[in-house]
Simulated assay, not measured.
Amino acid sequence: MTDTSTPPASESTAAAAPAAETAASADSAASSEETSAEAKKSETVTSDSDLFRQSEIAADYVEGLLDILDYDGDIDELVSAGRPMVEVVGGRLQPLVGQRGATLEALQELTRLAVFRATGSPSRLLLDIGGYRASRRKELAAVARNAVEKVKEHGEAVRLEPMSAFERKCVHDVVNAIAGVQSESEGVEPNRRIVVRAAE
């Protein structure tokens, strides 16, 4: 099912609470977003057809959620960079993203759980709503470059604010592409953060 119109919802604690309970089930999937190395460790060989099947299952689940929540949106399922993905596009979707993407992350965990229940395998599915992740990547790239400049100028490590696994992955990718600096994560969820320092 592609480009399916569906209805939206409001930011609900009902979505966030179950997501917290399912975080343990999707722990390997969430942590695999943190760094490319971790992703390679946890990633199993999966065919494109299997990945697209996961995105179809996820799209059906998201469509049902939008219908229940009475939100309208076009749903696209695809495979991008070796992982299943579902994108929801439409107006008035901000409540489904939430502050700093918190509701989006909760909905993603619920959707991953739905895929797991249908296939029996953990999923690295990425859910995006209203183009939030693309715009957030640009913001985080600027944050990462700013941290790198501070490290190079002052020589001291820079600790960033706590971030989600998706956000940390974005920062790691930018920092790791710049010579002379390195990044690592410290702390535990939900206060896990990135430290940028001079390369050893």
Rank of each mutant, 00 (worst) to 15 (best):
V62H: 00
I68T: 10
K40G: 00
D60P: 03
D50S: 15
V45G: 07
L66K: 10
D48M: 06
V62C: 00
D50Q: 15
E38I: 15
I68G: 12
A59H: 08
L69A: 10
R53N: 12
A39D: 04
L51M: 11
V45F: 04
Q54H: 13
A37Q: 14
E43G: 03
E38A: 13
V45I: 13
E56Y: 12
L78M: 05
E33F: 13
Y61S: 11
D74Q: 07
D48I: 02
G73W: 07
A59E: 09
E33P: 05
V62P: 04
S36T: 11
E77V: 09
A59K: 14
E38W: 11
L69F: 12
D60V: 07
L78S: 05
I57W: 10
V45P: 01
D48P: 03
E38G: 04
L69P: 07
E38M: 15
E33I: 06
R53W: 05
L65Q: 11
R53A: 13
I75Y: 07
D60E: 15
F52L: 14
S47E: 05
Y71Q: 14
D76K: 07
D48W: 08
D50G: 01
S55K: 09
E77C: 11
S55L: 01
E77I: 01
S42T: 04
K41A: 01
E77Y: 12
S55Y: 10
E63N: 14
F52H: 10
S47L: 12
V62D: 09
S36D: 07
E34G: 06
T46I: 04
Q54D: 15
L78H: 10
K41Q: 01
G64N: 15
E33W: 11
A39T: 07
F52Q: 14
S47I: 03
I75R: 03
Q54Y: 13
S42P: 02
I75K: 02
D76S: 01
L78N: 02
L78G: 07
S49H: 15
K41I: 05
F52G: 00
I57Q: 06
E33A: 13
I57N: 08
Y71R: 14
L51H: 08
R53T: 12
A39Q: 04
E63P: 01
S55F: 01
Y61V: 02
A59R: 13
E63Y: 13
A59G: 08
I75Q: 01
V45W: 00
E63I: 12
D70G: 05
L78K: 08
G64H: 14
K41T: 03
L69I: 06
D48Y: 13
G64I: 07
S42V: 05
T44L: 11
D48N: 12
D50Y: 10
V62M: 10
D70C: 00
I75F: 08
E63K: 15
G73V: 05
L51P: 10
T44S: 08
K40Q: 10
L65E: 00
L78I: 05
S36V: 09
A37P: 04
D74T: 03
D50L: 11
K40Y: 07
D50M: 03
D50I: 14
T35Q: 06
T35D: 08
V45T: 13
E33Q: 13
L65P: 06
R53E: 07
K40V: 00
S42F: 00
Q54N: 12
A58L: 10
S55E: 11
D60T: 15
T44A: 03
D67S: 14
T46P: 03
F52Y: 12
D70V: 09
Y71P: 12
